[in-house]
Design a binder for these strands. Sequence first.
DNA 1: GAGAAATGTATTATAAGTTAGACAGGTAGC
DNA 2: GCTACCTGTCTAACTTATAATACATTTCTC
Lengths: 290, 290
Amino acid sequence: MVDAVEPLKARRIYLLLRERILNGGLEPGSRLPGELSIAAEYGVSRVTVRRALDNLAIDGLIDRRPGSGTFVREGNSVQPIVADLSNVLSHLVEMGRRTSVRLLSFAYVNPSESVAGALGLEPGERAQRSIRVRLIDGAPFSYLVTHVPERIGVTYSEADLASMPLLGLLERSGVVVEEASQSIGATLAGPDVAEALGLEIGSPLLSLTRVVWDPSGQGVEHLHALYRPDRYSFHMDLVRTGAVGARRWNPVAKPATARPEPQKRKTEGPKSLKPKPRPVRVSNQRRTST
Amino acid sequence: MVDAVEPLKARRIYLLLRERILNGGLEPGSRLPGELSIAAEYGVSRVTVRRALDNLAIDGLIDRRPGSGTFVREGNSVQPIVADLSNVLSHLVEMGRRTSVRLLSFAYVNPSESVAGALGLEPGERAQRSIRVRLIDGAPFSYLVTHVPERIGVTYSEADLASMPLLGLLERSGVVVEEASQSIGATLAGPDVAEALGLEIGSPLLSLTRVVWDPSGQGVEHLHALYRPDRYSFHMDLVRTGAVGARRWNPVAKPATARPEPQKRKTEGPKSLKPKPRPVRVSNQRRTST
DNA sequence: GAGAAATGTATTATAAGTTAGACAGGTAGC
DNA sequence: GCTACCTGTCTAACTTATAATACATTTCTC
């Protein structure tokens, strides 16, 4: 009879206030209620409220001015890297930002059942697994676990992996890559991933699972990618197509040649020049630790 | 100098293990590592691990057999709803599953700066904000916050909102919807969202922010959606296009007419008939409290 | 049956979170 | 200047969470 307790009021209040700042009604520059008011509102002590505010201050979300009050800091919108759904990294290179890769693991393993199933492996068939972390300007933003069937003929070395995209290596080896299927979800950072990405355990992550097939339908690559949402997000433009009554969104297919940006929004509002102060921003670790 | 502490390890481990059971590598029926192993892995004491396992047992996710071990309970695999990036709900209807909507809030507000900027509102211009929760077969899976400029001519009522998609209502009102831009990220559940979706505070969420414009570039709708990743995920098929040397992924544009499924994977492995053993489960809050 | 390994249970000690209160000092309004 | 209100800091007592052990019981393997 483990009676689920209700601990950690400070964190609860921290999350609550953070939500109000990021998504909710608290405008940048506005003043928060006094610490005593907040304490009364949520039925906790002032010390507890202060702990929550401390964390918000560490996150850089608020500005505390003694005698005056606590204010929502302005300009705390750190834009994450934006990627479209196709070739994620071409953007970055265009922007002149330097990306690098750290190879954490390189081994031949018996894949998990789900990976084996997705790739269509025979029972007991092994796969080459590599774990990589991708960095931009020295800051890690993605954790990639890839599985490639051993029988595909893995012709690349560890050094190759650290310098070239895996798909490029496969295509160089003569593997024809035709189609893929991927799904996007969210999950929490475990110990390994948290350390590799410089996060706290339990931080939210974007997850992407992609399975790539060759023209015969043979599984070629299984990718499980985890992204820091404060540094990476998916972006896409949609157009409304179809007849009335069956209208739907369709993604805008971009030409293979790189283009600066679709940049279509011609809103004329005074703020329209600042197209998207996307507030999503997830920073929640107070201590990156390790 | 409040040194950020490390609270609630038990809950953290509970969330992590739950994530591994639901999305991660732990197959149903498989045995978890021993309590001591888990304790060592996460650097906590066995008591703490046991607390986490207690909660997982309450959730019905695991099965503890004294002397034998702790096992992932079978039959938890509730497939998440799979949506493509365009018309998320058409799938569901096709599948014959019943979705419903709960309207949590309906008001005219001064939108936050980020929303106002995205929609291109004049300073001080108000917007109609509605907060809805969407359910499938009675289980909530998404939390939607939409903003529509007041001047657009909001011709729908609260009752309309609870029964029809917002975009449909707008188009019925004569608003021409042409293009949109959206980005996908991840975040943690705050108190409000957690309660609305039946989650613990701190659970991971998929977040989608979409801005819709009419042909003149005027903002029409701002959508901020949060999805339970165990019940909802984005899925898309990609094809490799472009010349050698500049190959990239492009999404497969689907026809407006509903089609059962692309279903391309013709892998012949014995497990290929079970293409996706995605294990999932639902109930997880022990106490929604307050 | 012996032994290893697992969960179930209990005890004690330490660490951490919370509360309540008091006081100092800064800021703004009257 | 006075007052009200705010944050910053501190103390003391209390409650809860976690750690470190030890030991019993069940299960599986050999």
